[in-house]
């Protein structure tokens, strides 16, 4: 596996209004990796992703992507560099059809040929989306909306996909589909930064992991080591 650095957050501090949420977060993601960010509710996982995307401007620290400084880049420029986002709660465009959602995700593609190519790829990953392509996305089931959010993020053929709670509220067989798809996506060259409450699933498919507590990284290590850590076992895996 190549160890070239793709994403690097160094000592990032950020927050909403006067409320600081992140207190000097440092995260690294190498090319071709799946990296996971664990932690309880409200410790700053989603805020971390929003800061990387540029939806939130950090107060301090630096974010580098593929060698370039993206610390204060607006979201559409970060996206143009190859960062895609599948947000928590999916945030699909409920007024558009399935295929229009996917075309919105493909906004950065230049040619029709590329569009068709990626559309076919997403349809082959999620055949259900193909069946529902002319349906208004707001009328999809929760699982289908999750597939659509992931498919939409993949349409731009990103270098890095930020994935927020993909398994939230999904039936077990769908969780497995999500995990398999991530592994597949990763094999075809997209790195993934995964935020997940389902720590077992996350550590299974990731190479490296970070544990966040109160806006800072409390623990990090190889996924296998983290999975064996007593504290992680107790708090996040529910094994006494």
């Amino acid at each position: 596996m190549s160890t070239e650095l793709l994403l690097e957050l160094s000592e990032v501090t950020a927050g909403y209004g006067k409320m600081p949420v992140l207190h000097g977060v440092s995260i690294k993601c190498h090319r071709g990796e799946i990296v996971t960010l664990l932690g309880a509710n409200g410790v700053g996982k989603t805020t971390t992703l929003r800061t990387i995307l540029g939806q939130l401007k950090p107060r301090d620290g630096e974010i580098k992507f593929n060698g370039a400084d993206i610390t204060r880049l607006p979201p559409h420029k970060t996206a143009a560099l190859g960062v895609a986002h599948s947000p928590e709660g999916r945030n699909i465009f409920g007024n558009l059809t399935v295929i229009e959602n996917l075309r919105a995700g493909a906004h950065l593609l230049k040619t029709r040929k590329e569009l068709k190519e990626h559309l076919d790829r997403v349809y082959s990953m999620f055949p259900r989306l193909k069946e529902r392509r002319t349906q208004i996305a707001g009328s999809l089931s929760g699982g289908e909306q999750q597939m659509l959010a992931m498919g939409r993020a993949l349409m731009s053929n990103p270098r890095l996909m930020l994935l927020d709670e993909p398994s939230l509220g999904l039936a077990p067989q769908l969780v497995k589909l999500v995990a398999d798809t991530l592994t597949e996506v990763n094999r075809t060259g997209t790195s993934v930064l995964l935020v997940e409450q389902n720590a077992r699933l996350a550590l299974e498919i990731s190479r490296y992991g970070y544990v966040m507590e109160k806006g800072a990284i409390a623990l990090e290590g190889n996924a296998k080591e983290l999975g064996a850590n007593e504290q992680v076992k107790k708090v996040y895996l529910g094994i006494a």
Partner: peptide, 14 residues
């Protein structure tokens, strides 16, 4: 139309 529904998410699509 994407923007009319959710401007922030639309931005993250580039």
């Amino acid at each position: 139309r994407a923007m009319s529904y959710d401007s922030e998410t639309a931005q993250s699509m580039g």
